[in-house]
Structure formats: structure tokens, C-alpha cells
Design a protein around this nucleic acid. Structure first.
Lengths: 252, 252
DNA sequence: TTCAAAATCAATCATTTTCATTCAAAAACA
DNA sequence: TGTTTTTGAATGAAAATGATTGATTTTGAA
């Protein structure tokens, strides 16, 4: 058996089993223990496998987890909990829209490996989606400096091609009277279209957003359900519940 | 047994087994070991097989796209020089298309702060463009795992909206007969449209691509100009010049 | 926990296989 | 005929392999 063939056999077997004992590999390939050891060393140097005592496992091509510091600042605990709750709503077979934004981005780890199609307009979101092994589609358009969301005529045209089971949106303001709002009119426009092309819409907002109003109105409260956290003012939540469904996730 | 026949026999056998022991080949063809070795050397030079210790395997024209990391580190210097030459062609006020790919990506630092509009279908390219302070537009579409290019119906629809002064494309193969080619038909389709929507087209290719043929044809040689480097075989360049404009950038 | 047996490991060496190079014989060619 | 190309055998170098050694790690029983 050729070196190349053996390497293939080893990798194939690892693909099935994730971790295999050395003795099994010896059986499968019919090579001596020494040879297998050398093979494993080779493959490890090629960064294809990770050796463990007695065997080996395939290295997952995922990007390294962001550092803890990054995580804690980027996705505060509250966002994590809200994102997790949102992700629970997604079922295999769904086609969903994930809006640009850090809270919606926090959903992605909870969606890993699901059999879903995801559409997004957020540059930072794309990489995470692909790394999470999800079928990923992107709106085209102009890349906004700052949030790096795709907006404008291109994005508008793109979104018309899709229908979503659920849209998950971020927001900068949730107000009883004004409804959902965001600073940039261009982004607001995309969000509006996402709502209209989707069977259900959930807006993810941590407690700091409640009561705020920003420049561009996205939608009335009744047009989307809201997911927020216990940290929010309870009177505020009661008020909002008159106009929309509110999911409140447990505090820390 | 004729040389040609032997070559065919070898290739046929490789087709079946992917990798064969040299001794087996000797049995099959009835030629001496030396002859087989010479045959294998020939076939490898013709780029038809890849030799490994103890045998050989057929080169596949389909998958086998090197990872992004590999791409970006390999022949970095040469790509830099080619990219710089390409960037020199861009004038203020231009609208250009920059194809997904590591060589085209290398152009971006040389375009910094220019007053141009850039359209791309490469995920990794977007961030660089925005960071280089360029007005950036993105095609939508499906995100290919691997190269992370945007392809498919969405990308196709998006690209129809634009007209370019210059399109800069990468490629995996440049061949006198076949022309420009790339492994993925979906990407090839986008490239074709880019060419047709653009006043001028330049294909950027380091010397390793010349003479190669991959699965999907993108265009004939005369449909685009070529930028490559002095490392390329000079006879090859002469041949190519019969069908297209070739810019050759200085060696290291 | 501690200890000893078992398993696994890296390192080394002798053997086998494969390789490129060389050279002379055979074949093809003109 | 003489010349060129192809072939096969021989050589030593290089690479791959399998067995052995003793060190290290894991396991399981006390």
C-alpha cells in the first residue's frame, strides 16, 4: 500500500469515527505500527489531524474561537442569552434572514450544523455563518463603512428574490409610540423589506434599547415580535406587550 | 508496445486505481522498470499525472482548489508584482471589478484612497477594500465554501446592474487552445459576465498557471489581456502573444 | 491516593524498496 | 551506411519500512 493511499485511508477512517485507536488503523491499512506512527506524524505536520495518545482525530477547520475577552465585550452576556433564545426558534429546513448587527451575530454559534439556509446583509456575519457550516446567501449592494452592512439599491434588488420563514433583526430603538427604529435610513429600508418578505419576524434588543428612539423608523411594534431580557424595566415590557409579543429571557 | 500505448495503459490504470505500484505497471505493460519510470517522468511533465514515491496519481481538473491560506502564501512575491502592475492601470474616476482570488486581492493596497468604485464577489476582498477607503459594492449570492466567492443566481442578477471600465480576474489555467479556465463552473460563469460587462479585462496569472487547463472554460485568450511575470516560460509567452496582449512584469 | 502492569511513544538501526543516473545494446530512422 | 532515439540493465543514492529498544503515559487494582 502506498503512502498516499494509506494517508487517504487514515483520513477516511477519521472522517467516520472522529477519533480512532492506533490498533484499528493498523488493522485497516495493513501496515506496521511504526509506519502508522510515521503517517500520523506526517499528517499532523500537514495540520490535517490532531494526535492523541493512542490514536488521532481530524482537525476541525473552524476558525479559532474568539478570545474570552473579545466574546465578553462583543457579545455581552445579555446578548448571548437573547441570541440563544432566538436560535431556539429555528427548525431544520427553515430559511431565515439574519440582519447585520452584533446581537443577531451572537445567534450563529447556536445554529451550527443545522440544516437551514441563511441570508444576511452583514459582512461580519458571513464568515461566522460559513464557519458554522451553514448554507449562506448574501445580499449584494453598497458596503456601508462603519457597520459594514450591505445596503442600497443592490441589496434591495437582492432581497426581493428571497422568502424567509423567520427574519431576525437588530434595532437601536424600541418605543411604544414610534416602534422599532435605527439610525441609518438605508438600513431601515432593508429591514422593512426583510419583515415583509418573512412569515415571522423577531427583533432582538437588549434592555438598553427599550424606550429609545432613533432617526429612521423601521416598523410598528405589531409588525414583529420582540426578544429582550429580564434586565428591562418591567413596566416598559407591560406597555410593549399591548402592541406586540414579547419574549423575556431570564437574567443572569 | 508503443510509447503512446504504454502511456495510455498507464493512464487507464491510474484512472481505475488512482494510485498504483510501479511493479504492477510493469506487469501490465510488459515493459521494463526503467521504461515505466521514463514514461511516468514524461507524463508528469505533460502535467497529466502527479508522481508519488512508489507510484503516481492522475491529476484531477475538478476540485482540489488549494485553501485560501495556501494560495496567499504561495508565490507571494510574484503575485505582489503582478498585482502592482495591474493596479497601475486604474485611473481616478474608474469603476472596476475585482474578482475573488488571492492575486486580485493583492491589488488592493496599491489602490488605497483612489477615487474609484470597486465591485467584487470575494468575501475576503470586501474588508480590504473598505479598509483601503474605497467605495465598495458587492455582488450578492451564494457563498461558496472554500474560496468564499459569491456565486449563483444572486451573483448573476447582481452583476447585471453594473458596467465596468476594467475587470481584473484571477484564473487557474491559461492555455493556448482552451484559453482561461477555472475549476468551478459557477465562478466561471460570473467571470464571463464580468468580462462582458467591462470595457477592458485583465487576467492576472502567476507563471504556474500558464499551460494549465482546469474544468471550466472562462473565455478565449483574445477576450482578455494577460498579466504574468518573467518567471514564465518564454516560449509559452510567445505562443500566448499570438492570441492576446501579454504584459510581463519583471522578475524578483 | 499509590503502585505495578500494560499500552503507547519516540528514537534508532538494518533491511527492503524505490529512485535517478549512467552506459551499452537494440531499434528506428534517413 | 551512419545517426538518432529508445530501451534495458547496472550502479549507488535516497526513501520507506519493520523490528527493537528503553522511556513515557495510561490503566486498573490495591
Amino acid at each position: 500500500m502506498l503512502t498516499f493511499e494509506r494517508h487517504q485511508a487514515i483520513l477516511a477512517r477519521l472522517n467516520e469515527v472522529k477519533v480512532v485507536k492506533l490498533s484499528e488503523l493498523v488493522d485497516v491499512t495493513g501496515a506496521s505500527e511504526s509506519t502508522i506512527r510515521r503517517d500520523l506524524t506526517d499528517l499532523e505536520q500537514q495540520n490535517k489531524i490532531k494526535r492523541v495518545h493512542g490514536g488521532a482525530s481530524l482537525v476541525t477547520r473552524r476558525k479559532d474561537e474568539p478570545s474570552l475577552l473579545e466574546k465578553s465585550t462583543k457579545y455581552a452576556e445579555e446578548k448571548q442569552r437573547i441570541a440563544k433564545e432566538a436560535a431556539r426558534l429555528v427548525r431544520d429546513g427553515d430559511t431565515i434572514y439574519i440582519d447585520a448587527g452584533s446581537t443577531t451575530q451572537a445567534m450563529i454559534p447556536f445554529l451550527r450544523d443545522k440544516d437551514i439556509i441563511v441570508v444576511t446583509n452583514g459582512l461580519n456575519i458571513i464568515t461566522d455563518l460559513v464557519d458554522a457550516n451553514l448554507k449562506t446567501y448574501v445580499l449584494g449592494g453598497y458596503v456601508k463603512t462603519g457597520t459594514r452592512a450591505f445596503v442600497g439599491a443592490g441589496a434591495l434588488q437582492s432581497i426581493q428574490s428571497y422568502q424567509f420563514d423567520i427574519a431576525f433583526l437588530g434595532t437601536n430603538g424600541v418605543d411604544e409610540e414610534v416602534g422599532f427604529s435605527t439610525p441609518d435610513p438605508e438600513e431601515a429600508l432593508i429591514k422593512q423589506h426583510a419583515i415583509h418578505r418573512s412569515t415571522q419576524t423577531y427583533v432582538l434588543a437588549d434592555h438598553t434599547k427599550l424606550g429609545d428612539v432613533t432617526f429612521s423608523k423601521v416598523a410598528d411594534l405589531h409588525e414583529a415580535a420582540l426578544i429582550t431580557s429580564e434586565k428591562a424595566n418591567h413596566d416598559m415590557i407591560e406597555q410593549l406587550e399591548k402592541q406586540t409579543t414579547v419574549k423575556v429571557v431570564a437574567g443572569s
